[in-house]
Design a protein around this nucleic acid. Structure first.
Lengths: 191, 191, 191, 191
DNA sequence: TATGAATGAGGCTTCATTCAT
DNA sequence: CATGAATGAAGCCTCATTCAT
């Protein structure tokens, strides 16, 4: 057996890391950040506790990594939009995109909303989130501005709040919603 | 010499209970349910740890008491409204009332939203909340129905989600909002 | 209303004391010394915790009082016998008397055996009990001595042990015994 | 470098478990179940409190493990005997064996008798003990039956009670007994 | 790289006891 | 004499984190 190449090690590390993060995301979403234990996450990931600490310095670091990773995805989509959002069609796409995210990654958003209202847990992430929301809202406000709306900033805020609110409801009671219909209605309200 | 009268005891118990519940509400809202310690709550209430357990069986029982108490208030206002909500003016009052609640009892709602996404913590309360929201939405939907709206139920849902969303934003960044203006805009959007 | 006479006070004190001791005996026998709480005993006695401490300095003092009280009764019967135990009829009476005690006061003996093997709880009582048993055995040995038995002391010991053993079984499974028959058999074995 | 082999881990766990159980047995026997603290047991075992909980789920689970372990030993000896007990020599061996157990494992029996009369502590063990005693007595009764005794069952019961009684005395005052002589006398009484 | 035994701080809870009234 | 609110020490247990192998 020859020793693994440098490249292979990198690959292993990457896989392991993903493995652990997925397990952590599930655990956190399912049991909440505090109830979820490192032991449980390690077991779910099929990995020893010790190894987990090779990849993440602490439980909170693991959480932060998850949040950062999620926000990156989240941001990718939104930043790809915000500077060009000025036709109704784009607004429609934006709204659709937002809900698509929640539908595809409910665990992440479950974790996210769970953390959001827990002071003392990942304050950094909370601040980061705040800035992101603000920038999103600024982006949206441009749309309403070009549309000649009287209170573009507030309108954008309302749209953001509405989308978060619907997302919240959806996560709490996924079965009882026809998200598509709601999307359309939201679009009609704000277009 | 002689023991206190029954009445005096009742009074004492009532006062202490309030004292403890207020301290707990602050602690929970400030630090989150898990971070907040019984020791801290007791200290904040100016009371010994032991005494706290004379009034509440456990940390979770304390939480439940807080939630139940809050929901009662919450419910009072809303049930007083939901069966007669059929003029725009009443809708305006309803919206105003909702935000008034959050403005007056931000700690309670901070606690509430914090618990909402934490599985394993007070699942009972979460279910209770779910039912309450559903009944509210049903109440609201009557308004849109009488107005002849095409999708009254969904419209009601959107209004509920929007109010919760705005509430969430407000709790996360109280300073950056002109709630009154938002209230008016929401009314215009849904009246 | 004239104040109570001195005598009445004494009477009250005595009643209360009995009341508390009975409740304590039941609690201890039913739940064991450690599991039984002062609060529970007071409630069972229909008395406040504070009052209980007017009569007994501590939980252990209460236990000691119970044990002492029981031993007194116990001793009364046996000391009335031990110096005259030299006919078979008297032996029969002695055996009968022993079991009669257990039958009449099972709670006391339940408590007693429970304490007996718990070092650190009422060591005083345990020593006291040891002396009592020794003196009983010495008394019994006289019987076997006069009977010309080869090992009177050991014979007495065996009889004592047998009676305690049967008592133990009886307390653990009261229903499965014909105590009277056993009494006779014991008498036949040792007469 | 590399982790320990599975085998090594098994070995470690086994050793630690024994270590902890021995410490617990001593603590329980010496101080009684309730007085003995987890902290004390851990210290006696030379182990951290936390580690103890890696091996036993709770204080009561630790007690149960001890009792189960002891009963296994206990049972081994007695079941090896009960089906062939029909000559006086075997009876002698049986009696001898019983006392040998107590002499060799006084701590276990101290614990055992201590638990026996404590309702609410390990009720399971108490029931288990009851069954064991009953089966023993049934076994013994066969001996008296073959011997043509009038009340074999009761005779067996008496023998059992006597042995327990002597055991109890021995544990309470080990120094004052010539167990061997008592064994012989018991044999003479029941052979 | 990988393991899981081991640690220990800290949390919740119980309960004997005290004391103002 | 009588009450029960109040205290605080002490106990059980959890779990993030470390470390020898």
């Amino acid at each position: 057996m020859s020793p693994r190449t440098e490249e292979q090690y990198v690959q292993i590390r990457k896989n392991r890391k993903v493995q652990i993060m997925e397990a952590a995301l599930q655990s956190f979403a399912l049991e909440g950040y505090y109830k979820a234990s490192i032991a449980g996450i390690a077991k779910r990931a099929g990995v020893s506790k010790g190894l987990l600490y090779n990849y993440f310095d602490s439980k909170e670091a693991l959480l932060d990594a998850l949040l950062a990773f999620g926000m990156e995805k989240f941001g990718d989509i939104l930043t790809g939009i915000d500077d060009v959002l000025d036709t109704p069609e784009e607004l429609r796409q934006y709204i659709k995109g937002g809900f698509e995210l929640i539908r595809r990654e409910p665990d992440f958003f479950r974790l996210y909303f769970g953390i959001l209202m827990q002071p003392g847990v990942s304050d950094l992430a909370r601040e980061h989130y705040g800035e992101m929301v603000q920038s999103l809202i600024r982006g949206l406000s441009v749309y309403f501005e070009t549309k000649g709306d009287a209170n573009p900033m507030e309108k954008a805020m309302l749209l953001g709040a509405l989308m978060d609110g619907v997302g919240l409801y959806y996560l709490l009671a996924p079965g009882t919603f026809d998200l598509e219909k709601l999307e359309k209605m939201i679009f009609e309200l704000f277009k």
